[in-house]
């Protein structure tokens, strides 16, 4: 029944069969005790009554979920209709994160490929080159990015100087700026996993394809991508999921004019709203959606590889 779940369809080997409990134990113990317990508590919180200005009262209620899904007007006296506010915020976040993930993939895959085809002794140096910028705090990097792209910043001044544009692009405080920020925040999380997969790629496969008169792009699509898929999937998860909850890039580059999932939830815990059950409910809903998609994917992959 319990089908095995790997992130993708590599072969499932069983040479260490019987040791799974021993091997999994450290992960179970750390996450199970120090995260699952607190998160379980949060899920419980989502069904409790809110205490004014933060905290919970131990009385069961579905009020938080009701607030998420049903609109009763500003004063709560209108007949309930579907509440689009929060669904809209979720959808916007998913969209932004999706665009950033695709951008990371389009830039990250060729970069990973390029690194993997360097001399073996220089590959680690390339990997470090990708991660060195991340020694500088994300806040500082985001502020610097803002400096670069704002209307009077170097990018626009350069473009004006070359005559490529006649007036500043007006990038700041736009959705594009948010996507750029997310892309920039998580790029290495795409490059490194893909690299880890591509590095193993056996070029005799490409040779075989070439012998059968496949163009290199056909080879890329039909031969290479399926082989390095585990890395691509891992990279997409590592970019997409953290992007969903990100708040620095939306706040600083997007002008914080609209809530994203991250800032909406943060407002419930740290803002004047102080509505912990609602923050917990929004988190539970987010967690359920992402987890469901991931597990359905893992399961399908597994069925595929068993055939």
């Amino acid at each position: 029944m319990a089908a095995g779940a790997t992130t993708s369809g590599g072969t499932v080997s069983n040479i260490y069969k019987g040791n799974s409990a021993k091997l999994m134990f450290p992960a179970w113990a750390m996450i199970g005790f120090f995260l699952l317990a607190p998160v379980g508590m949060m899920i419980v919180y989502s069904f409790l009554t809110k205490e004014f200005r933060g905290g919970v009262i131990w009385e069961f209620t579905l009020a938080a979920y009701d607030q998420f899904f049903f609109d009763r007007g500003l004063f709560g006296d209108e007949p309930p209709s579907i509440e689009w506010t929060y669904i809209g915020i979720f959808w916007r976040s998913i969209w932004q994160a999706g665009v950033a993930t695709i951008a990371c993939l389009l830039i990250g895959f060729p970069t990973a490929w390029f690194i993997a085809t360097r001399r073996p002794s220089t590959r680690s140096a390339w990997l470090f080159m990708i991660t060195i910028p991340y020694w500088v705090n994300l806040l500082i990097r985001t502020v610097s990015m803002k400096f670069l792209i704002r209307d009077t910043g170097p990018l626009n001044e350069f473009l004006l100087w070359t005559g490529a544009v006649s007036e500043p692009l007006g990038l700041i405080n736009t959705n594009f700026a948010v996507q750029l920020g997310l892309f920039y925040s998580y790029l290495p999380f795409m490059v490194l996993p893909i690299y880890a997969s591509v590095e193993r790629y056996d070029f005799s496969l490409s040779e075989a394809a070439a012998d059968l008169y496949s163009s290199i792009w056909t080879t890329l699509w039909l031969v290479i991508l399926p082989v390095v898929k585990p890395g691509i999937v891992a990279g997409c998860i590592l970019v997409f999921v953290p992007s969903l909850g990100a708040f620095l890039a939306p706040d600083l580059l997007g002008g914080a004019k609209t809530f994203m999932i991250g800032s909406l939830i943060e407002e419930q815990f740290k803002g004047s709203a102080g509505n912990w059950p609602f923050g917990a409910a929004a988190s539970t809903i987010l967690l359920s959606i992402v987890m469901a998609v991931l597990l359905i994917y893992a399961r399908n992959q597994n069925k595929g590889s068993e055939r």
Partner: peptide
């Protein structure tokens, strides 16, 4: 990836991904 199928494998994968999934 190397210990074949075992009870709670899907659950284990969910657990490992959990820190990533929680805001």
């Amino acid at each position: 990836t190397r210990a074949g199928r075992f009870r709670g494998k899907t659950l284990s994968f969910a657990l490992i991904s959990l820190p990533l999934m929680v805001p």
